[in-house]
Design a protein around this nucleic acid. Structure first.
Lengths: 213, 213
DNA sequence: ACATGTGAACGCCTTCACAGCA
DNA sequence: TGCTGTGAAGGCGTTCACATGT
């Protein structure tokens, strides 16, 4: 009855962020007909410490076999279950520039339950263009597109100046999870989960270390 | 004579990663003719704690004025100096798909000392195409392009299967700093600094939390 | 014998709270 | 007075080291 019971049900974000990586490695094993993998081997492949691997997996339950290792099929199922692979995640992308088109065609955005269902722009010169199997739609069609979708995810791939308006449009449409590629911190109420990806940040970090030498 | 003296010269990576954000905010102040900013205001804009802001800035020196705040021009100069803005960083992008083209045209890759000097591909159907001011070159031209450049940064925007070969090509050409967008962990010797950006990772994290509810 | 699962230690980062200074 | 700069505390994530279990 104490809160102790729930200790293992709250997975730290750092651990969540490693799960997709573990899954990639485990699936690679499946393809190579490898049945069992040790925390040591997995750690080597994921470039982390083996204790980190073992502790991470305790959040998925007690999956290993002492003296042997982890069954890769069991691991794949356990990880995928936590990442919600039994679900589907419709993705709507705002901004049909090169980045929006790259994401639309990206394997990562069309696997593991994700699939891009709409690509939107405000530029009449781009609307109607084909990108993969999709046609670029007018931004005003986004709201209509969202209705009826479960768990829609919005992606902001617009120029920075348009990001604020876009996020408001998405929220009005009922999107509660947003991935933002614009270099702007979006202010939303806390029911909306926003994650920011800064494409040039890592470049600036590299430059910092080059500057150090 | 003790190592204590060097304490403040080693800037933690977490702090480095916040510097570009602070700089954006500070430059915004400059544009709006705001002369002074407090740690509280900056913290609000950067969505961090004000103590974090103040501690971060101690790594740049003692820049503030007690009772008043930070001079935005002083801040801009101090941050830019640490990020090496007096230097220039030629960027070479491997892979002229949508992502490579997006990065080539991206403001973040053509500001603050960064400029894309080459875009390379192996697909003859793409080689020769114009992207912004650049023409896509054959991958074999990359090595030639690097010679004579100081502090070149390589960007891998190829399909995953080509990433391994591309990184080897870059290292042979003398590139020591690499930004990798392929969902593959690259193994290099430790003289090469590799940073990985996983475009779909944040999507998977969003999905995890959607799955929780 | 061997690899997992985990208590305990460690180190890093964040935050509080206040001394120090304009 | 008001805000910076920072010692100290707190919290989180990683790693060690070994007890546990097959």
């Amino acid at each position: 009855m104490s809160t102790e019971n729930y200790k293992k049900t709250v997975i730290p974000e750092k651990v969540v962020a490693r799960l997709p990586l573990y899954r990639r490695i485990v699936r690679n094993c499946l393809n190579n007909k490898i049945k069992v993998i040790s925390s040591e081997e997995l750690a080597e492949a994921a470039m982390v410490n083996s204790a980190t691997v073992r502790r991470d997996f305790t959040f998925l339950g007690s999956l290993g076999v002492r003296g042997s290792g982890y069954d890769v099929e069991v691991l794949d199922r356990a990880i995928s279950q936590k990442l919600g692979a039994h679900n589907t995640w419709p993705v709507l992308i705002a901004g049909a520039g090169n980045l929006g088109r790259a994401l639309t065609n990206s394997p990562g955005f069309n696997a593991n339950g994700f699939f891009v269902v709409g690509l939107f722009d405000i530029d009449p010169g781009v609307i109607g263009a084909k990108v993969g199997d999709l046609k670029v739609e007018d931004m005003s069609a986004l709201s209509r597109r969202v209705t009826g979708l479960r768990n829609p995810i919005g992606v902001i791939a617009t120029p920075p100046a348009a990001a604020e308006a876009t996020v408001n449009l998405m929220i009005e449409a009922g999107i509660l999870s947003i991935l933002n590629f614009a270099p702007i911190l979006l202010r939303t109420d806390e029911s909306v989960r926003v994650r920011n990806v800064d494409l040039s940040l890592e470049l600036e970090i590299l430059a910092f270390y080059l500057n150090q030498t």
